[in-house]
Every structure is written in structure tokens, then in C-alpha cells.
């Protein structure tokens, strides 16, 4: 990873923590950072189908035991903790919170507004359900499920035609077909919110 990319990773990670902090979500586990970033990557093409995926640099590997894993994020969180941009607490699965060094200006030059806003949206949706549910969302994610079932070795498809986006498009089409009178008032962000509510209903009903 070159220096520019490194700073983008740091900026992304801090963006997640700042977004969470602003929502009174004061600390996150490292595994949650991997998962938030994975969801941000895999869902990006639904909201921005015409754009290249700005999160494509995260090469998430398929680790069944912990979920999607990116060594860049792992190194990023470790670096940020070492220099007190993040403060870990607890031992077994430490919780990280913003440190004294993590002022808004830090890594600002690497922080692109589009990345920041997208991460904010994903964090705000997830915060409605709480950190412990992120695991359940990941293991019900279509692209994740597909990769696990087919024992993919090439990593996840985060392109605009990945399995999650295919399902979301079907979800949107089902809404438009069933409720045409309401669909013109629903934008991509609301479909995403509805999708998360739908998956959450499956979590509550203990369905996969």
C-alpha cells in the first residue's frame, strides 16, 4: 500500500469513528470496522451505479470465522491506536474510541467528501440496530453468503452487479411493482433503509 492509500484508509477509519461518535456510538470493535467498511463497499454500487467503486482498494478476504477481513483495515486500526488517534479499552475484543489526537483536521487532505458521506450513511443505518447486530447483517448479506457457499477464493465482488446489489435491485423492483403509487417518492437511500429493516426482520424471526 502506498502512502496516499494508507492515508485514505486512516481517513476512512476515522470517518467511521467520527460518524459513530456523532450518533452517541462512542466505541467500536475492530471487527465492526472491517464489517462497516465491507458493507460500505458492497452496497456502494446501488446508490451510485454510474461511479467506480471508491472503496475498491479494500481487498476483503473471505474469513468464515470472523467475516470479511481487510489487512489494510487491520493495519490501519493498529496504526491509529499506536499513535492515539484511537484508544482501545478492554482485552478480549477491545473497544476502540476516538483518541485525543483524532481532531477533525487529521488526514483531512485524504478524506474525500463522497467517502465520508457514504460511510456516515452506512454507520447511521447500522447504529439503529446496535453493534452486536452487524454480525447478523453480514452473515445475511447475499454477496457474503454466495462467497461462502461457493468457496470463492477470489474475494468478494464489490462491483455494481454483485449479489447484494442484484438482490437490492430485485427488492426495489418488487416495491415498484407492488406499490407503484408510492415508489416515485422512494429514493436509493430509503430503499437501503428499507432493505436493512427487512434483513433485521429476518434476524428477529431467526431466518437466514
Amino acid at each position: 500500500m502506498n502512502d496516499t492509500n494508507k492515508y485514505v484508509v486512516y481517513a476512512d477509519i476515522l470517518s467511521i469513528f467520527r460518524s459513530a461518535d456523532a450518533l452517541d456510538w462512542k466505541s467500536l470493535r475492530k471487527s465492526s470496522v472491517h464489517r462497516v467498511m465491507y458493507l460500505a463497499s458492497v452496497l456502494f454500487g446501488f446508490k451510485f451505479p454510474e461511479k467506480d467503486n471508491i472503496f475498491s482498494k479494500y481487498n476483503f478476504s473471505i474469513e468464515k470465522y470472523v467475516g470479511p477481513f481487510s489487512s489494510d483495515i487491520e493495519k490501519g486500526v493498529n496504526f491509529l491506536s499506536k499513535d492515539e488517534y484511537l484508544i482501545p479499552s478492554g482485552e478480549e475484543e477491545p473497544l476502540y474510541s476516538l483518541g485525543t489526537n483524532a481532531a477533525d483536521q487529521i488526514f483531512k487532505e485524504a478524506l474525500v467528501q463522497a467517502r465520508d458521506e457514504w460511510l456516515k450513511l452506512i454507520v447511521s443505518i447500522l447504529s439503529l440496530y446496535g453493534e452486536n447486530k452487524i454480525y447478523d447483517f453480514i452473515f445475511r448479506d447475499k454477496e457474503y453468503q454466495d462467497a461462502i457457499k461457493s468457496n470463492k477464493t477470489t474475494g468478494f465482488d464489490i462491483g455494481p452487479e454483485n449479489r447484494t446489489i442484484q438482490f437490492l435491485k430485485g427488492f426495489q423492483a418488487a416495491f415498484e411493482e407492488t406499490l407503484p403509487q408510492h415508489s416515485e417518492n422512494v429514493d436509493a437511500t430509503q430503499y437501503l433503509e428499507l432493505y436493512f429493516e427487512y434483513v433485521f426482520s429476518k434476524i428477529l424471526k431467526r431466518e437466514n
Binding site: 406499490l179 408510492h182 430509503q190
Partner: peptide, 24 residues
């Protein structure tokens, strides 16, 4: 398919989704 189930859910909650159209 799961999407058929989704359609059923949309139909079952038809009235509730009117909220989405009620901007205020």
C-alpha cells in the same frame, strides 16, 4: 423465491408504506 416473499410483505404493509409518500 425470496423476492416473491418480499412482494407479499410489501402487499401486507401496503397502507403503512403510504408514510413514505407523506413527506412531512
Amino acid at each position: 423465491s425470496e423476492l416473491d416473499d418480499v412482494k407479499k410483505l410489501f402487499k401486507a404493509h401496503k397502507d403503512d408504506f403510504a408514510l413514505l409518500a407523506d413527506t412531512e
